[in-house]
Design a protein around this nucleic acid. Structure first.
Lengths: 348, 348
DNA sequence: CATTGAATTTAGAACGTTCAAAATTTAACA
DNA sequence: TGTTAAATTTTGAACGTTCTAAATTCAATG
């Protein structure tokens, strides 16, 4: 029986049914019920029916925590994301969730809000809940020793979008270098000779990659790389506008601007228009990320698309591989980006 | 000893240390270690030191799943959010997480992506992981019987931002009616006589509340409510722009537009400007939500601020109350919104 | 109708913790 | 020093599952 009465309220409370209640109700043993629950072919069809009926009747809910305890492994994967407000990361998590739930893993999503302290708290919480692995987009200022720590802890770890420089770390991100190169070469192909780069915070490895792609594309085509035409700024629309205003005031001014991301690019477009120039005609602009606004704005923003969902899926796949083969290290997967051509670069 | 050798690899593997390993190492019993872990005052200071040293030395990690199993309750709370890409919800979750982790609960964040099927999968998964309660922003099309189901399941449930109409449901949201009224009365106070309302999907209860606030504010001040000046459209910038274009083409045109949310309002501002009118001077616009862009755009968007973090905190508090007193039902908390005055309404 | 092997089912221990109750040690006092 | 109470520690069962190995049932065969 699964009903009992509590003293305080006098109300009838239904204790949650367990596998034993099902067993009693169906007239079989715990083990048989367990086999049915896991879809084993060992049980006779008729018995299975009886058990399933009992499950239905008692409203039984499988207790995964107990099963995991016994089986010594969990089906939960921690997702530690630094900035959920950024739609890009939301997309990454959508890809992660899709790939994980296909393989019966449950993603445990978690938000550090770019705070190192929160990140530490969350990582130990996940460890205490015995997750099978962790996908982490580390907060700025995360120590490079974190991957080694995870190895010691024996918890598989995949970094996404930001890496820490440990040669043994497992990392999934975009091919920033080639994406940036792609964008730059497109502009050069359109005949531009005076190209500038705007955006990104110096400290970020991502930015370095993108600037390198820009630099090398120029070099390959025999164009000058002018350090004074490479401006850093925080990755926002406002900062992009300010930086562009300054740059466009110089003489000569660039005729094409490669931007760190779309937010910056939108700000840059704004500044270009305000300076009396036509975006695309007098000054070409390309972005990076292909956010939703890039298509909606007018003229449309030419940009490098990095398929965030795909990155999520790839990260999930790598993590599942690591769960199977924990000894693997140093895997890096760079998802190749694609150029999406719209009007902001003057092409059609 | 916690080291052993696996046959396959020959590598030394460190089995995760348990409370028993700590007990042996410190020369005490399981129970004593357990008491130390839970910060009990019963253990002698010197013993505690010895145990803590052992914990440190063996790199022990508390196994919450096992503890929860024994204690028959978990410290995990499910957060089921329909649209994480919406920065508003991200803010709500930040508030939830903050309030929950203060009380030692761990928020298990989850994303339905506005899919009913995903929502169902996630809810059963959370049940299987035996969460202490659930905070849910239900997907469109969720059946009104869901709260009753949760009651039968004996899982405390708090709805946020969207309710289902069950009189016993527990709900935390904004006071849409008064927020909308506030915005409308502000415009009336500035002398406007021809007011229109744009945005929101008919089916949503939220929209009905906001339109009611708009209507009643008009009535209170003896102004006509014209149903043909109340336009529904999906809550996006683009849809807002289209709706406003249509509306501004009529004659007479409204001199003030109350919008369902800020996204719509930004689209409306765009249309107003395109029609050759000055936003604020010729046509006032107010939004709802106070998203980040509202302050950045020019002119600044006057809008109703609903403090999403606060909503998250309140929802968390209510849930924790329900976990303590599961018999409570029918609680509704409406967080009062505030008017943030910028330039888009012509005031200063 | 035994016998055999396959098919199906089961008992008991185990996973890592905490609870209740009991056992032991320590301190205080006459 | 013995007695008592308080302080501290421990034992064994329990939480809901699954594993291993063994037990039982069934069907087919000679």
């Amino acid at each position: 029986m699964t009903t009992e009465t509590t003293e305080e309220t006098g109300a009838v409370t239904r204790r949650k049914a367990t596998i034993i209640d099902i067993a009693d109700h169906a007239g079989v043993s715990r083990s048989t019920v367990s086999l049915v629950l896991r879809g084993s072919p060992l049980v006779k069809a008729e018995t299975r029916q009886r058990v399933l009926a009992a499950i239905e009747e008692l409203g039984y809910v499988y207790h995964r925590a107990a099963a995991n305890l016994r089986q010594q492994h969990s089906q939960v994967v921690g997702l530690v994301i630094n900035e959920l407000t950024n739609p890009f990361f939301t997309e990454v998590t959508v890809g992660l969730e899709a790939a994980l739930s296909e393989r019966q893993y449950l993603p445990f999503l978690t938000h550090t809000d770019e705070s190192l302290e929160r990140q530490e708290r969350l990582l130990t919480a996940l460890r205490e809940y015995d997750v099978a692995g962790v996908v982490l987009c580390p907060v700025l200022g995360t120590g490079a020793e974190l991957p080694a720590q995870f190895r010691r802890w024996q918890v598989p770890l995949v970094l996404v979008m930001r890496h820490l420089g440990d040669p043994l770390e497992n990392y999934v991100g975009t091919d920033d270098y080639h994406g940036s190169r792609l964008a730059t070469e497109h502009l050069i192909g359109l005949g531009h000779q005076r190209l500038a780069y705007i955006g990104g915070v110096q400290a970020l490895g991502v930015r370095q990659e993108r600037v390198n792609g820009f630099r090398d594309a120029l070099a390959t085509h025999g164009l000058d790389y002018r350090p004074d035409w490479v401006l850093a700024c925080s990755p926002t629309r406002l900062a992009g506008r300010n930086a562009a205003q300054e740059l466009l005031g110089r003489s000569p001014a660039p005729t094409a601007i490669v931007c760190f991301n779309d937010a910056v690019a939108l700000g840059v477009m704004h500044a270009v228009a305000q300076s009396g120039r036509s975006v695309g005609r007098d000054c070409a602009v390309v972005g990076f990320d292909n956010i939703a606004d890039a298509a909606l704005v007018s003229p449309g923003l030419t940009t490098v698309s990095i398929e965030p969902q795909r990155i999520g899926r790839v990260a999930a796949q790598l993590l599942l591989e690591l769960i199977r083969h924990p000894e693997q290290t140093g895997r890096t997967v760079l998802v190749p980006p694609q150029l999406v051509i719209r009007q902001s670069c003057g092409a059609h």
